[in-house]
Design a protein around this nucleic acid. Structure first.
Length: 400
DNA sequence: GTCAATTCACATGAAAGAGACCACGGTCTAGTG
DNA sequence: CTAGACCGTGGTCTCTTTCATGTGAATTGACGA
């Protein structure tokens, strides 16, 4: 028995096709960031005054996902910190991702997260938000120093709770006597600034930088660079990088996605205990990513979400030419009484349907049927080969 | 036949409630010297 | 006398409900040709 296990471990360690898988992980910060030299210079230029303990302008960065925004900022951050240490400059940089669910997606949590970065213990809830602000300003104002706050995915936070909190942030500086604060906002949403309160907008975007998507050629460079170090020799076949880049380029030049694709493909090759990564594996990886994402979302969804989805699936299977909100709600009510669950209002079900749409599990368009009112026309957008699996999950969790 | 008004059946927004979780400060209680 | 248990108050957070307002084309009905 133990021998067998050891064999498995042996073959796992010896047969690996990876040299260093880390390089394909999304949290990896490479030494060199190809095709972003100009942006890095810009960021560095804007933040440079901090090395003389002068407050740099607030900076606003926007660009689609996977265009290297966070990467570039972190890169400059690291260099800046190194330099500050060498020159003995009181500079701290606090990075908060406003999206990472449950960590920092409310005003309270963002400030709490900032405090934690300063090695403060903060309760998960229970304190007035204003208290946290006060504690934060007190702590950083203890000494003469410069604090740079980086708010990543700031658009998500604003979408969720409005732009009030940004106003609070931009005003932190005015309560300080010794320390100084500047803010870097990073957004995936290109139109984000337009919808902001003008006061916030002008103070947040003293400087702006936009990141353009990578094109296919640039993506290839990035992938080549990384795969050279991540995989052992002669693993990656010709055409793989090109295909991977093409996939991602279609996806508004998302480099993160491209790297993920390559990594998953590699893992699949390993699982098949093959030695060559050819371009068919890119397709397989793409399917796997989609599938895993969808199944994960569905199996972790609350019961009522699952009931709604179950209703939509059963309507789809009945081959009705169009599914409307009421149809879904009727079946949902039925399922509720079958499963003895408290039923939710139609208003709420409407929101749940919207959320499914956002996740790409269904799609709908609002149509007006004239005299017969307005409603949503709902379509299931799960790939057909997944429907069975999804039904399995739903059955397991709901027992219907 | 034409055109504006009407109407339906929801969508969409805003506000507020319910219940879980949590911190903090004050009060009570049991153990200790 | 003191540490720890316990309680009440007041805060956040998520999921919902309630109430209010918005919406776009089929339908209606008045009008004129």
């Amino acid at each position: 028995m133990t021998n067998k296990v050891n064999d498995i471990f042996d073959s796992f360690t010896s047969k690996t096709i990876f040299k260093d898988k880390q390089l394909l992980q999304s949290n990896y910060t490479p030494e060199v960031i190809p095709h972003r030299e100009k942006e890095i210079e810009q960021i560095a230029g804007i933040l440079a005054p901090s090395l003389r303990l002068e407050r740099p302008s607030n900076l606003f960065i926007y660009g689609k996902t996977g265009t290297g925004k966070t990467l570039c900022v972190k890169y400059v951050e690291n260099e800046l910190i190194k330099r500050a240490l060498k020159q003995n400059i009181e500079l701290s940089i606090l990075y908060v991702n406003c999206k990472l669910n449950k960590v920092a997606d409310t005003e309270y949590r963002i400030v709490a997260e900032l405090l934690r970065k300063l090695n403060e213990k903060v309760a998960a809830t229970g304190l007035p938000t204003q208290d946290l602000y006060r504690r934060f300003t007190e702590i950083i104002d203890k000494k003469k120093q410069l604090v740079i706050i980086i708010l990543d995915e700031i658009d998500q936070a604003v979408k969720k709770m409005g732009d009030d909190f940004l106003y609070h942030f931009t005003r932190i500086g005015s309560d300080l006597s010794k320390a100084q604060v500047s803010i870097i906002g990073i957004s995936n949403d290109l139109l984000f600034l337009d919808n902001l309160d003008p006061r916030v907008k002008s103070s947040l975007s003293e400087e702006e930088i936009s990141f353009h998507p990578y094109n296919a050629a640039q993506l290839q460079d990035i992938l080549k660079e990384r795969s050279k170090k991540a995989f052992k020799e002669n693993i990656v076949q010709t055409g793989v990088i090109e295909k991977c880049a093409a996939y991602a380029a279609r996806n508004h030049g998302d480099a993160r996605k491209a790297l993920e694709l390559l990594r998953i493909a590699g893992e699949l090759v390993e699982r098949d205990s093959k030695k060559e990564l050819d371009f068919e594996y890119i397709d397989k990886a793409n399917n796997k990513i989609e599938k895993d994402k969808i199944l994960d979302v569905i199996s972790n969804a609350p019961k009522h979400f699952q009931l709604v989805l179950s209703s939509i699936i059963s309507l789809t299977k009945k081959n009705k030419e169009a599914i409307f909100t009421t149809d879904v709600y009727d079946i949902y009510l039925n399922l509720c009484s079958k499963t003895r669950l408290e039923k939710l209002t139609q208003r709420r079900i409407g929101d749940i349907i919207s959320e499914f749409d956002l996740q790409g599990i269904i799609s709908f368009k609002v149509i007006s049927r004239g005299r017969h009112g307005r409603t949503r026309e709902i379509k299931l957008s799960l790939p057909t080969h997944l429907i069975g699996k999804v039904e399995g999950i739903l059955f397991e969790s709901l027992g219907i």
